[in-house]
Simulated scan of single mutants.
Amino acid sequence: MKTLTLLRHAKSGWDDPVARDFDRPLNARGRRAAVTMGRHLRDLRLTFDRVVASPAARVDETIVEVARGLGRALTPTWDRRLYLAAPTTLLDVVHECEPAAESLLLVGHNPGLEELTLLLVPDDASALRLAAEEKYPTATLAEITFDADDWAAVGVGRGRLTRFIRPRDVDPTLGPDGD
C-alpha cells in the first residue's frame, strides 16, 4: 500500500514587497497554521519516507514551521517542477518515487494539489471528497492511499481519500478568511 500526502503551503504575505512571486514569504498567520498542522501531524503519528517540495520561499518556510510543530526535521528533495505545477506534472513526480518508499509527502501550491487530489480520488460524494472539492485552503493536508506496490501504479480514480485536514479543523481560530 502507498500513501500520498499533499500539503499546500501556508498563507503567504501578499503585502510583502518582493520582486518575484517565487520569493513571497509566509505571513504570521501562515507560520502559526504551519506549526499547528505540524503538531497535528505529530499527534496523528504521521511519518514520511520521502518528502518532495517546491523550492518557493513560502513552501520552504512552511516546511520549517511544520517541522517545528512536528518536533523533527523534514528533509525534502527540492524540485522546481512543483512550483505552481499542473496535476499531470505532480503525478509525474509521484510516478518517479522509488518503490521502496511507502509514504510520500508533496508540498506545493494550488490549484495543482487540489486538482491532483480530485483526479486521483473517485467522485464518490464522500464527505472528504466534497470538502476537497469545495476548497483546498492554505496549509491543508490531503492523504490518499493506494492499493499498489509501486508508485507507477498510482493513477486517475485509484486512490482513497483518507484524510482532508484544514488548519481550521485543528484550531478554529485559523478559520476561513477568503484564502
Rank of each mutant, 00 (worst) to 15 (best):
166 R>G: 04
166 R>M: 09
179 D>R: 00
71 G>F: 13
83 Y>K: 12
83 Y>F: 14
59 V>N: 03
22 F>L: 06
19 A>I: 01
33 A>Q: 00
135 K>F: 07
168 R>A: 15
57 A>W: 02
20 R>K: 00
83 Y>T: 09
177 D>K: 03
139 A>V: 12
155 G>I: 02
112 G>P: 12
25 P>C: 02
57 A>Q: 15
70 L>S: 10
144 I>M: 09
89 T>M: 02
79 D>E: 15
26 L>Q: 05
22 F>P: 02
57 A>L: 13
59 V>Y: 08
125 A>K: 10
120 L>S: 08
136 Y>T: 04
130 L>F: 09
163 R>Y: 06
141 L>K: 09
49 D>P: 02
76 P>M: 07
110 N>F: 09
67 A>K: 14
68 R>P: 05
150 D>V: 08
71 G>A: 11
175 G>Y: 01
126 S>W: 13
104 L>F: 01
167 P>G: 11
143 E>Q: 15
175 G>D: 14
87 P>N: 02
87 P>A: 13
162 T>I: 08
163 R>G: 00
90 L>I: 11
27 N>R: 01
81 R>L: 03
89 T>N: 01
83 Y>D: 05
157 G>T: 13
47 T>V: 03
87 P>G: 06
12 S>C: 07
107 V>M: 06
76 P>G: 10
142 A>G: 11
30 G>R: 07
112 G>M: 08
4 L>H: 04
104 L>C: 04
178 G>S: 02
139 A>Y: 14
22 F>H: 12
88 T>L: 07
11 K>H: 03
59 V>F: 06
21 D>M: 06
107 V>H: 05
45 R>K: 15
50 R>G: 00
